[in-house]
Design a protein around this nucleic acid. Structure first.
Lengths: 350, 350
DNA sequence: CTTAGCACTCAATATGTTCGAGTGCTAATA
DNA sequence: TATTAGCACTCGAACATATTGAGTGCTAAG
């Protein structure tokens, strides 16, 4: 489809545009990338590439700018050339749990770290899968009308929630229910839930209603595939020249802050493990059309964890992918560092 | 110090400036606020007020702008005139615990809600005080070398943390320790800790080291006065005309995002209960010199909770204070609403 | 197929002009 | 003595108008 030279021109345009941020003209290419050929020749190639949809002009008689199609080719090339040794990690998720503040703290730190390394916006997410297995549950009385519902999943993820319990439920009954559920430790919630159906009606007598309420709360906590998302520092966005247009910036910002759209996006693309890149309008969120997302996902039986960076379409993909690889690597080797923001110079990595 | 009329002029300037955002001139005042007097008279008063430090001119031959001193007088007046019935709430903190996602969820929602109502930036914080009392602790084995440390305080606040435990500590020993600690339910941690000292050396034999480590972890979790802070949507900042200067905006944004400075500020001012206002440079954070903070704090035995709004110095104080009062009131009456962001029109409340 | 040359386009920048709100001061007035 | 009207002056904001320069498309020559 593309001749050798066309590809060369295309990649050069993308590369130069990523560096300079300005439309790239034929003269520049001729001087810096394809020294053999003259500007006029390159102009012809560029005209062809524009016709094919890889380049476009912001206005008549201006330099060319890459389209999403061009970025796609560029990124795929980068991904292919990535050193073999840094690919194919899928086990790092295991280490996260060792972080001193639990999974939430770990993901928070990871997203911050990614923000710093990439100088864009780091993010980290975990999705509770339906196959999560129960480790232990507990009910703790808080006061006369409230108790705390506590669920620990295999792997150390903890959910808790205060439940208003107006019915007259004795501590004994609660403990009984908890004990019963805990014998089913190691099973998926769905199985546990089914196994308990009969028990409730048989063994509990007048406490049936209350126990059912407790179970419903548990169900709400465990049945869905809820995603928790952490976004690193958004401050870096201010330094990105692509986002100077204040009104679009505001829109972008709102989307990132609300997290909902991002979570959807990640859920959609994260189903297979490994590194992926979503460029510009490839994501379906209009506010994110000027952004690209580089992410890596890793699934274990009970949860899917994703780390990623979101930045301008015109981001430095090599650097971001390298940063992501590095963080994944750090997680593999040491768990997360205790003090991720105490580095100071980790910013202008070459 | 100030004559009646000077005060009137001063308050008018502040009021008009808050509304319009532009320097206010003598003519405007004469027409809208002090209809009896002519512009020239007011000019003289303004010149005096400027000399006294209440007003300033952005440049020669421009209107006047209030200084922080002027805001101070204005705000104090507003606070004094506030309807009696809405003051003096100190019990709302109790209700927070009923929120379906626990205290953290409640504070997150509260900060969002405040953002929406005020159209500035809402925030909510809780500081764990040293007097917090223990309800229950638990150790749950996660895998061979990790266990989950779980602390529930009176009131339903939950802390948890995965601890790496390389020593050979049996489940029995852990359970024993937990049981022992749980007999001290209802005491402050300091007391619990002291009471346990002897037990460790007496009853545990070779497990002493491990138990000491567990206790150290607990201590780290409970001894300090750590503040958790939630910041509502920052998106509103974009709509504030005072913050259009991109470079100062960026600085402000970073401070708000990092939360550290804010937490310090709240810790410093939150010691006595009730509503307070910090105007401009009265706070010591240079990046916040164009901002004011309106907050309300409430202490119980175990924790201090604060709700607040941060906005431009030139904020609509009446409206913000009313919003805060209203949220406090809502908390008192219903706990927090289940779906605080599903309101859509809650924005331009009059 | 490639290259040099030329006329043309268009955004960005700089320059100049006008406009209006607001002040300070002074002299007249109640 | 306190207040007001009048006037000259200042300064930023907004608009219109040149100027510049990088880049293109096209054509004709190599």
């Amino acid at each position: 489809m593309l001749t050798e030279r066309q590809l060369e021109v295309l990649l050069s345009v993308v590369h130069e545009f990523i560096e300079s941020g300005e439309q790239v003209g034929s003269r520049t290419l001729s001087k810096r990338y394809l020294k053999g050929r003259s500007a006029a020749t390159i102009r012809n190639e560029m005209a062809d590439l524009e016709e094919m949809g890889y380049l476009m002009q912001p206005h008549t008689s201006a330099g060319r700018v890459p389209t999403t199609m061009a970025y796609r080719i560029f990124v795929d090339t980068v991904l292919q050339r990535r050193p073999r040794g840094e690919q194919g990690r899928g086990t790092w998720m295991v280490r996260l749990r060792e972080h001193r503040d639990g999974l939430r703290g770990a993901l928070g730190s990871a997203s911050e770290l990614l923000s710093q390394l990439s100088s864009y916006v780091g993010m980290a997410a975990v999705t509770q899968l339906k196959q999560a297995r129960l480790n232990k549950i507990d009910f703790v009385r808080v006061d006369t009308s409230h108790f705390l519902l506590l669920v620990i999943l295999e792997g150390g993820v903890v959910h808790h929630r205060v439940v208003n319990m107006p019915y007259d439920l004795s501590q004994d009954a609660l403990e009984d229910l908890a004990r019963k559920i805990n014998t089913l430790s190691g099973y998926e919630w769905k199985e546990v839930s089914e196994a308990l159906q009969s028990y409730i009606f048989k063994g509990l007598g007048k406490y049936t209603d209350s126990c059912r309420k407790a179970l419903d709360e548990l169900d709400a906590l465990l049945a869905g595939e809820r995603t928790t998302l952490f976004t690193g520092s958004l401050a870096n966005l201010f330094d990105i020249p692509d986002f100077q247009d204040i009104v679009r910036f505001r829109a972008l910002f709102s989307v990132l802050e609300q997290e909902g759209e991002l979570a959807k996006l990640l859920a959609q693309y994260g189903k297979k493990d490994g590194i992926g890149v979503i460029i510009g309008e490839e994501n379906q969120v209009p506010e994110l059309e000027d952004c690209s997302v580089v992410f890596s996902s890793s699934s274990t039986e009970g949860a899917r964890t994703m780390l990623g960076v979101i930045g301008p379409k015109r981001m430095n993909y090599e650097r971001v992918i390298a940063a992501l690889d590095r963080v994944l690597c750090d997680i593999d080797m040491d768990g997360l560092t205790d003090n991720p923001d105490g580095e100071g110079d980790g910013h202008d990595e070459r």
